[in-house]
């Protein structure tokens, strides 16, 4: 698998009020961004526990994005 073809699975913890809304408006205003992000909506970034991130890696995510 060459690096150009490789599509990493990225897990995203997005805050309902900030990044999630930003992602939404990015979609509405038709900005292009990579489809590799699998989103988990949290009600606040403060809800994200260290163990969530580690578990994400255990389950095979190549990268984890936390957005507040």
């Amino acid at each position: 698998m060459s690096k150009e073809e490789y599509n990493p699975r990225i897990l995203g913890f997005l805050c309902n009020w900030c990044c999630y809304a930003a992602a939404d408006s990015a979609g509405v205003s038709r900005y292009q961004y990579p489809p590799n992000l699998r989103t988990i909506r949290v009600m606040c970034t403060g809800r994200v526990d260290p163990s969530f991130v580690i578990r994400g890696f255990v389950e095979g995510a190549a990268g984890i994005f936390t957005g507040g």
Binding site: P8, I10, G12, W17, C18, C19, A21, A22, A23, S25, A26, S29, Y31, Q32, Y33, P34, N36, L37, V53, A62, G63, I64, F65, T66, G67, G68
Partner: peptide, 25 residues
């Protein structure tokens, strides 16, 4: 791992963050 901030009004910033991070990974 990336921890970034983007407000609801910052769609372009969010797009940039995601694009950069995807490239990085």
């Amino acid at each position: 791992l990336s921890l970034q901030w983007a407000s609801a009004a910052e769609a372009p910033r969010f797009v940039k963050l995601i694009t950069d991070f995807t490239g990085q990974v």
